[in-house]
Write a protein that binds this DNA or RNA. Structure first.
Lengths: 290, 290
DNA sequence: ACGAAGTCATGCGAAAACGCGTGTATTTGC
DNA sequence: GCAAATACACGCGTTTTCGCATGACTTCGT
C-alpha cells in the first residue's frame, strides 16, 4: 500500500476545488488527468476517496483524511520555497509585490518605475488589490499595507504615519463655508458606516447620504459633488476636483508598512526593493500627514 | 518556482541513500530516472541540489534543505497510511508482524499457523528479527517484543511475565552437582558481559568463558557443552540437550508484550491477530515462569 | 419549458517519462 | 598492480501519461 505524493496533492486540490475542473486549473492540468490520478490513488490505497455525484466529486472520510495530510505537506512545500527564496542572492527573476490599488496609483508608481530601471533583470509583478494576499502561501513576496501592525509571522517596518481628513468638491466646500449649520452629506465606508468622530463642532448637522464598500467609488462620488468623504490625506490631495474641507480636522489613520514573511525578508530582491522604497516613502512624509 | 512533490521525495531518497542506485532501489525505479528527476528538480528550483562527485551525489545546503522538508512530508504520509490502515475493517490483504527469532521458532509457530488457517484471505508476513523494526515507518504492523514497557507512541498489552535461569548440558550439570566449588564457565551475552547476579551461594567460583552478541550462538555453545548460559525459561526448556542447572535460580526477565502503533491498534487485521495471540500466550504461562 | 453552463465519462493521438543497454571514470579488494 | 565492483552519463525504443475532442447528464436561470 503506497501512494504517489503528487496524487496526494491532486486529492487535496480536488477537495479544495470541489470539481475536477477547478482542481485541474489549480494544478495546471487537464481535468481528465485529475480524474485519472484520483482513480489511481483510490486503487493504490484500496478504497474510495470520492463519491461521484452528479454535481461533482464529494470526498469520503478517507478522502478528507488524505487531503488533510496533504495540506500539511503543502505547508512544508510553502515553507521550503520561502526558505530557498530567502537564500537567493541573485537580483534576477520574478518578484511579486502587492499594495492597495490607490496607494500604487497615487504614490508608488515612481518608485516602481525607478526599481524596474535599476534592476532590469528582475521581472516585477505588481498585484494591486485591497485583498490581503497570503504571504505564507507566497501569493506575493512583499506587501505594502495600511494597518496597525505587521502581523503574525510577518516582519515589517513602518514607512510612515498617516492622517485622514474630509474632502469635497470646491463648490460644496464653498457652500459649507457659507452655511456651516446646513446638513452635511457624508459618503462613508461600509465597514465604518457612521459619521466620523471628532468632527469640528462648528458643523453641527450631519447625515449619511450613501455607503460604499470601495474607496475608489467613494472618491468618485465625492468628485461628483454628492457629498463629503473621509479619506487619507495622500488620496484626497491627489484627487482632481477635490479640496480639503475643515469639517473633519486631520485625524490619525493606520500607518503604512512594508511587510514580508520572515523567511524571505533577507532575500536579495526583497531587500533591494525595500532599500529603494523606505527612503522614497520617508522623503514624502508631507503627503501623508499635515 | 514550483516543484513536483514526487521530485522532492526523490531528492530525499538520494540524500538518504547517497547514490542514484540506492535511491532508485528505495523508490522502485531505475537509477537513470532518479538522475533525470534530480536534474528536473534543480532546473525547477533554479539552483544546484547536489554536487556530482566521482563517488556519488553530494547534497548541497539547498539539497539538504529540500530533503529535510521532504522528511517531514514523509512522516505525514506514514501517519496517513497508518490512519487509513487503522480504519480498515477488512480481514484481507497484507499484515506484517515481527517478533524475535527464537520466540517465533519455539513459541509462536502454532498461533501463526492457527491464524493463517482462520483467515486465509490475509497474507501474513512474518519478520523474524532481533532488530526493533520501526512501527512508525510501518516496517511492521504489529510486534511481539521482550521489553520492560511498550514504548513511546506505541500501544501494547503485556502477554506474560518471564523468568530466566541457567542451562547446561546434562553432563556439565552432573559435574557441577558433583563438585559445586569447581569454577563454573559462563557463556554470556555481550550487552551484559558479566556473571549474572543472584547466583546461588552454593557455587562460589565463576568465570566468563566467552561472550556472544547473539542468543542463538549462546545456546549453540551451551549445547556443545562449553559452559553454562543464562536464558529465558521458554528457550532453555525448548532446547534439546540442555537442562536447567540450579546455579542461577529463576530470575526476573523482561516481559513479553504485543505492541502496535496507536493508529493501527484498532485495525481489523491487527485486532484479529491480537485476539488469537493473547489467550494463546496466557494459556502457556507455564513455559515462561517457574 | 428550454437553452446555457456546469458536471463527468470515454476514446484517440501526441508528448513525456521511463527502463535498458552501452561506455567511462573511480574506488575497492586481492 | 590488476580485476571486480561501484557510480554515473548518454542514447534509443517502449511504456505510460497526458491533453483534446466528443457525448451524456444535471442544474440553473429565463
Amino acid at each position: 500500500m503506497d501512494i504517489s505524493w503528487d496524487d496526494m496533492r491532486t486529492v487535496m486540490c480536488l477537495v479544495r476545488g470541489g470539481s475536477l475542473a477547478a482542481a485541474a486549473q489549480e494544478l495546471g492540468l487537464n481535468y481528465t488527468t485529475v480524474a485519472r490520478r484520483i482513480t489511481r490513488a483510490e486503487s493504490d490505497l484500496g478504497g474510495k476517496l470520492f463519491d461521484r455525484l452528479a454535481d461533482g466529486y464529494q470526498p469520503t472520510d478517507a478522502g478528507l483524511l488524505v487531503a488533510s495530510h496533504a495540506e500539511q505537506m503543502d505547508r512544508q512545500v510553502d515553507t521550503l520555497m520561502r526558505e530557498l527564496q530567502g537564500r537567493d542572492a541573485n537580483l534576477l527573476g520574478p518578484l511579486t509585490i502587492t499594495a492597495p490599488q490607490l496607494l500604487i496609483a497615487h504614490v508608488l508608481t515612481p518608485v516602481i518605475d525607478q526599481f524596474c530601471g535599476a534592476y532590469p533583470d528582475i521581472d516585477l509583478h505588481v498585484r494591486a488589490t485591497n485583498d490581503l494576499l497570503d504571504l505564507n502561501r507566497r501569493e506575493a513576496d512583499l506587501a505594502i499595507r495600511i494597518s496597525r501592525d505587521p502581523g503574525d509571522s510577518l516582519k515589517g517596518v513602518r514607512l510612515t504615519a498617516q492622517q485622514s481628513a474630509s474632502f469635497a468638491t470646491p463648490a460644496l466646500a464653498r457652500a459649507i463655508a457659507d452655511d456651516p449649520t446646513s446638513p452635511i452629506d457624508w459618503i462613508v465606508y461600509a465597514d465604518y458606516a457612521a459619521v466620523p468622530k471628532n468632527v469640528d463642532s462648528s458643523y453641527p448637522n450631519h447625515r449619511i447620504r450613501m455607503t460604499f464598500d470601495d474607496m475608489v467609488a467613494i472618491r468618485a462620488a465625492a468628485q461628483a459633488g454628492l457629498g463629503v468623504a473621509r479619506m487619507p490625506l495622500f488620496l484626497g490631495h491627489a484627487s482632481h476636483g477635490l479640496v480639503q474641507v475643515p469639517v473633519l480636522p486631520p485625524q490619525p489613520y493606520p500607518d503604512i508598512w512594508v511587510v514580508a514573511h520572515r523567511d524571505v525578508w533577507a532575500a536579495a530582491k526583497v531587500m533591494a526593493f525595500r532599500e529603494m522604497l523606505v527612503p522614497f516613502m520617508r522623503g514624502r512624509r508631507a503627503q501623508f500627514v499635515a
